[in-house]
Amino acid sequence: MASIELRNITKIFRDAKRKRDLLAIDDVSLSVEKNEFLCLLGSSGCGKSTLLNMIAGFEKPTEGSVTVGGKPVDGPGADRGMVFQQANLMPWLPVWENVAFHLRLKGWRKADRRDAAQEYIDMVGLRGFENHFPAELSGGMSQRVGIARALLLNPQVILMDEPFAALDAQTKMDMQEELVAIWQKQRCTVVFVTHSVDEALVLGTRVAVMTSRPGRIRELIALDLPRPRDTTGPRFNDHKRHILNLIREEGLQQRQAAVA
């Protein structure tokens, strides 16, 4: 059974100020299998984040339906973990309280929350930083806390919205490696939004290349490259060339449409 099912999704944003409707997503259907790592790849403004936000429940499709684990999505909830572009940690809580925030909402006692958080803090390599506050963490460390916080929900699905976009190249590579390791260990479904071709190819089991405005799925590419992925190997580069060509064509068509 598919873990996430998007059926004929259309999203129209109503721009009340300019009295104009914007077709952001045009008839997208997509199913994500259990334990799959799907990368949604597209340039900015292509609607990839909007699509993710619909799975998260922050936005509703104008037409079509979204189901996660067979149940229709009708709002945000703890059955799906989300990692944002900015870590969005509660600045007044130390690392371990941020990781265990869900348990705080569930009314767990402090000692129990502390114990439960440790496993996930260790998993993302933050042992020793349990009592640090978010203001004392680097960007990469903050994102680790965000990932640990999502993992603690033990969700069927983890949604990631360009979580490494703001990190430097070295940190980004480390984080990608660790994310793959965690995903392999936890066996969960990941939907990962990115605008980086390399990132999609390093991480995904499948890549959905999106067209921009209105957002459609241009091509679904299954990646059977062995892990850890060799970013300089010929097969990696074949895929990369293919995707870059798709994106280039797309840009060309857009410019022509703009001229016409």
């Binding site: 998260a56 922050f58 703890a78 944002f84 925030f101 909402l105």
Partner: peptide
């Protein structure tokens, strides 16, 4: 974004007020 993050972790409106908005 903190409110979004908390509602993604299952916070009710009352919990949002107490655990996010107030602090």
């Amino acid at each position: 974004n903190l409110i979004r993050a908390a509602s993604m972790m299952g916070a009710t409106e009352q919990q949002l007020l107490r655990h996010v908005v107030f602090p």
